[in-house]
Design a protein around this nucleic acid. Structure first.
Lengths: 148, 148
DNA sequence: TCAAAATTGGATACACACATCCAGTTTCCC
DNA sequence: GGGAAACTGGATGTGTGTATCCAATTTTGA
């Protein structure tokens, strides 16, 4: 239902939010989120184009959030990489009967609206503040102490 | 969010429900739902494998619903062609901290649960019975009187 | 100024969703 | 039995999502 890229993007921003406002390198993010580094750089480029993150080259550079975690919603992140497309006109391409959706497509759109609403009303800060035994991102203390 | 195949499958079963319990040929379904005929036959094969529809060869044959419209939910149709996969374990593949989801993935799964619930609680009969000016399927009286 | 750190962009590869076509098979009905 | 109706299955084609690699570029700090 949600693409792999959306999953990756969310992991990244959650991790960035944990360390906000300090930048993290793609290398660090890849290790922390278990996302393939080469692909992660593409995902980050997308997030940067949409203004969700900012990236800085050179020594001491890296990726950081543009907004603070309490101003950034899950929806903004999702929409940056793969926008939730609400059903606004008849998918059969029939303009013959105006803008009203038929019962089937109205129900599908209602489901999309529910997801959109849930994502819109949740900030990254809320995800981090969640009172729970599990840490955000399902992270374990030290996953892979193998390379470098 | 929902694949093209899901959209096609739903159009087909709605149309079948309108004519239940009489079978419709793939040709008729393709014209009514504006789904490419060749691809539609593949979608129907999938629905048949999952027991949602039954297909009968030969003269007078065609495709018909296995259940009556008031016993068939949208969820059953969706799950037949592209199952909604709830998030039950940590997507990072970390089994280290049991079955509890982290705050991020619990929210994603909650969104999936909302969709699942909405689809599960709606039968095809309810879609057809909807009191509205738009007919189900966004159908117009005579779309394409061109071929044959 | 130069080397190292770090992102950027292009080229490439692979699998899967979407789509088409057609020969083969089943079934009905005359 | 035979022909027409109708689905089945396999082969094939195309576009997109996921993923990798590397040369080029930018930036910092010594």
């Amino acid at each position: 239902m949600f693409s792999q890229t959306v999953e990756y993007a969310l992991r990244v921003v959650v991790h960035l939010a944990e360390h906000a406002p300090h930048p993290r390198t793609t290398e660090q993010l890849a290790e922390a989120t278990l996302v393939p580094k080469a692909y992660l750089s593409k995902v980050i480029q997308g997030l940067a184009r949409q203004g969700v993150v900012r990236s800085q080259r050179g020594v001491g550079g890296g990726v950081s959030l543009v907004k603070s975690p309490d101003e950034l919603s899950i929806l903004e992140v999702v929409n940056a990489v793969e926008p939730i497309r609400r059903i606004r006109t008849c998918p059969l391409g029939l303009t013959a009967h105006g803008v009203r959706l038929c019962p089937l497509h109205r129900r599908l759109d209602n489901a999309l609206a529910g997801v959109e609403e849930a994502f819109d009303s949740t900030t990254l800060a809320e995800v981090l503040a969640e009172p729970t035994s599990s840490s955000p991102l399902c992270r374990v203390p030290k996953p892979l102490p193998s390379k470098k």
